[in-house]
Structures are given as C-alpha cells and as structure tokens.
C-alpha cells in the first residue's frame, strides 16, 4: 500500500476519503443555528443546554436528541432558531446591579425549609401512630 499509514484510524479514514474527492470538504455552516433546551423531568423548566446547526426545526430536534441527550435524562427537547432569541447586550450587565439596598425584595423572613421539615415530621409520626386497618 502506497497510502500513508496513520496510527489514528480516524486520520486514516479521512485520508482515504480525501483521496476519493478532488476538492477537500468545506467546513460548511450554511445551516441555521438553533438553541436547544432540555426538560429533564415532567414539570421541570426547560433548561438551555447549548446550540447546534440544522437545516430546519425538524432536523434540529432529531440531531439534538443525540447531541444533548446521548447520556443523562430528559423527557422533552425544545429548539428555537437563535435569531428568534433577543437578549440584552452583555456590556449592559450593570442594569441588573442595585445601587441602593433592596433587601426588602428578598424573602429572608420566610423560613420555608424549616416549615417543610416540620410538616414532614408530623406526617411521619402520624403514620407510625396510626393502628393498622384490618
């Protein structure tokens, strides 16, 4: 074989593929960019996980399934063309900072975790005290 040997089989196959065509393949990104969201469990919010290129939304869903849910869990995928998403400029990140004390907007007074723990305790002791129904 006059062909150059590569230890990496991927490089080997790329060489073989290039031998077959006269023009090298283009790094082509004429496909539209889609942002991908995954809903991990029913009732969860869809969460942004990344983006990919696809010819349309149908292929975007098909390809995103493996691109983003090859591993891990999910029950639903959303895709949206990136051009449909509007955003604030990153240079304007300061619009989210507070110049004066706005702690009155926080829920410091509500000790939710403690209350939930108390309720769960009550439920547990209610279960153990209850006599078994025949």
């Amino acid at each position: 074989m006059s062909r150059r040997w590569h230890f990496n089989p991927y490089h080997q196959r790329i060489d073989e593929a290039l031998e077959k065509t006269s023009t090298p393949p283009q790094a082509d990104t004429e496909w539209e960019l889609f942002e991908v969201f995954v809903r991990e469990r029913r009732g969860d919010h869809p969460v942004h996980v990344g983006s990919l290129h696809a010819p349309d939304h149908e292929m975007a869903l098909v390809l995103a399934k493996e691109q983003y849910l090859r591993r891990g869990r999910g029950v639903q995928l959303w895709v949206a063309p990136a051009r449909c998403i509007a955003s604030t400029p990153i240079e304007d990140a300061d619009i989210f900072t507070h110049a004066t004390d706005k702690s009155y907007r926080e829920a410091y007074g509500y000790k939710v975790a403690e209350t939930v723990r108390k309720i769960r305790q009550q439920q547990k002791s209610a279960e153990t005290e209850e006599p078994c129904a025949t």
């Binding site: 196959r13 790329i14 393949p25 082509d28 496909w31 290129h53 390809l63 399934k65 493996e66 090859r70």
Partner: peptide, 18 residues
C-alpha cells in the same frame, strides 16, 4: 460506524454513531 469522523456534518456524525 464507518461514518464516525467522516459524516457530512458533526451533528449527523454523532446521531449516526449513536
């Protein structure tokens, strides 16, 4: 699997490899 690394576009490569 012979397309792994050679598919027309990266996303298609991942999908077919899976």
């Amino acid at each position: 699997s012979e397309w792994t690394g050679l598919a027309p576009i990266l996303e298609a490569d991942v999908a077919l490899s899976s």
